[in-house]
Amino acid sequence: PWWLRTALRGVFAVIRAVPEVIIALILLTVTGLTPFTGALALGIAGIGTQGKWVYETIESVQEGASEAVRAAGGSTAEVTRWALWPAAAPTLMSFALYRFEINIRTSAVLGLVGAGGIGSMLSNYTNFRQWDTVGMLLIVVVIATMLMDAVSGAIRRRIMEGARARDVARSS
């Protein structure tokens, strides 16, 4: 129904509007200073972004396959399985990898506000003015981010190339 779609879009928009750091600060009052707080903040923020990407991807899927499954007597679950999922899966997987990459970068920032992880270590060593350790941690964060960016970029390219090849084969 249209009202459910509108309500979900509103919820996703509100979640996306609140930065991860603010979500973490709110969660700190409930969960305390633990790495779970950071993970939960990243998860909540990710729901808003992933939700938007999912509904935009599903809306952009061409109607032909869905109509064919419906014409053959397919139910909503069958339309989803045989028409929507094959068309949307490569894009959705690519977006999931991209969101994971964003979470890697953001996790260091969340640690600075007390949500645990390497950001918390950065904050502690900065307070104690142990600059050699701070420098090494920054190098680790940069290298980990660059590696994750390279790996997820390669995986995303493979996924999308496979999807394009499948689309070309179908149109032939």
Rank of each mutant, 00 (worst) to 15 (best):
A108H: 00
G116L: 08
R16D: 07
T37N: 13
G73L: 07
I26C: 12
F100G: 11
G116K: 00
G119W: 00
G48L: 03
A154Q: 10
V151F: 13
T145G: 15
G51R: 00
E20L: 01
A83K: 04
V21T: 13
E67W: 05
G48M: 05
I102G: 06
G73Q: 07
L25G: 11
G119D: 05
P35V: 03
E63R: 13
E101N: 14
A45K: 09
G46N: 06
A41L: 03
W53V: 13
M146I: 09
P86Q: 10
W82A: 12
P86N: 12
V14I: 15
S172K: 11
Y55I: 07
V21N: 08
E59V: 01
R157F: 10
M160L: 15
I118E: 07
L110N: 04
F100E: 08
L4R: 10
V151L: 14
V140L: 14
L25W: 04
F100Y: 14
V140A: 15
I26E: 03
T80P: 00
G43S: 06
L4N: 01
G64V: 02
A108K: 00
G114A: 09
V61P: 09
G162A: 06
W131R: 08
V140E: 04
V151Q: 04
W85T: 13
A88Y: 04
R70M: 13
V30H: 03
S60V: 02
G114Y: 01
I159Q: 14
E67P: 01
I22N: 05
L92H: 06
G135M: 09
V30L: 15
R170T: 11
T126S: 15
L42S: 05
L40C: 06
V69N: 09
T76D: 13
I15Y: 07
G153N: 10
G32K: 02
I26Y: 12
R105W: 07
R16Y: 02
A71H: 04
Y98I: 12
I159P: 08
V54P: 02
R164I: 09
R70A: 15
G135H: 08
A83E: 06
A72Y: 03
L97P: 02
I47W: 04
F36I: 12
I47T: 12
